[in-house]
C-alpha cells in the first residue's frame, strides 16, 4: 500500500508535495466500531472522544453477537480528514476494540435511524398528520383522542424533514435512536 512513490530527486524538493493530501475541510463520517462486550467498553469509547476533544453527532450501541461477546458501536463524527484518521487510530488502540471501520471511506453505507414522535392535535390536524405519516411511511403505534405516536425509520435527513412538518402541527415529544449503519454490497 505504498501510496507514496518517491519520485526521482524527491528528497531535494519540498516534502509537502509528497504528503497525503489532507484537506482542512470538516467532513461527516460514520464509523463502525466492533467491541468486546465488557463492562466499561462504552465508557472507554466515550471517554476517548471527550478526553481528546472529538465530536460525537450520534452514537448507538448494542450487542450484535451474543456468543462472541461482541457489540457494535456506530458513531457519527465530524472532523477534518486528519482528525478522522486520528479518531480511527485512537479507537484502534483501545484493547477491547476489535475492529474499526470508517464506513464513509469504505464506500457508501446504508444508514438508518428510528424515531418515535408524539404529536398532539384535533380535527383537521389529525387528518393532516395521518396524511404526512403516509407520505413518510410512518406508522401509528399509539393513539388517543388528542394525539398520535408515530414510528418512523429512515435516514436522519428524512426524520429531520418529518419533524419539520410535524412541529407546526403540534409535535410534543420525540425520541431518536441515532444511526445504525452497514456497508453496502457483498461480504
Amino acid at each position: 500500500m505504498s501510496a507514496l512513490k518517491i519520485k526521482k530527486g524527491a528528497t531535494s524538493h519540498s516534502a509537502y508535495n509528497l504528503r497525503p493530501n489532507f484537506s482542512d475541510v470538516e467532513e461527516r463520517h460514520t464509523l463502525a466500531v466492533l467491541v468486546e462486550n465488557e463492562p466499561g467498553v462504552l465508557a472507554r469509547v466515550i471517554g476517548l472522544f471527550a478526553g481528546r476533544g472529538y465530536n460525537i453527532e450520534s452514537l448507538t450501541v448494542a450487542e450484535v453477537d451474543h456468543t462472541g461477546h461482541q457489540s457494535r458501536i456506530t458513531i457519527v463524527t465530524i472532523g477534518t480528514p486528519q482528525t478522522i484518521n486520528q479518531i480511527c487510530a485512537q479507537l484502534g488502540r483501545i484493547v477491547t476494540v476489535h475492529e474499526v471501520h470508517d464506513l464513509t471511506v469504505e464506500g457508501r453505507a446504508v444508514e438508518r435511524e428510528l424515531a418515535l414522535f408524539k404529536v398532539a392535535g384535533k380535527g383537521d390536524d389529525r387528518m393532516e398528520m395521518l396524511r404526512l405519516a403516509d407520505v413518510f411511511r410512518a406508522n401509528v403505534v399509539d393513539s388517543t383522542l388528542e394525539s398520535f405516536t408515530f414510528e418512523i425509520t429512515g435516514t436522519s435527513e428524512k426524520i429531520d424533514a418529518f419533524a419539520d412538518l410535524m412541529r407546526p402541527i403540534g409535535l410534543v415529544e420525540m425520541a431518536r435512536t441515532g444511526i445504525a449503519a452497514l456497508s453496502r454490497g457483498e461480504v
Binding site: Y16, R19, P20, F22, Q82, Q86, A89, R93
Partner: peptide, 9 residues
C-alpha cells in the same frame, strides 16, 4: 498507528 500523522504529517 495513532502516532503517525498525529502532529506532523
Amino acid at each position: 498507528p495513532s502516532s503517525i500523522n498525529k502532529v506532523i504529517r
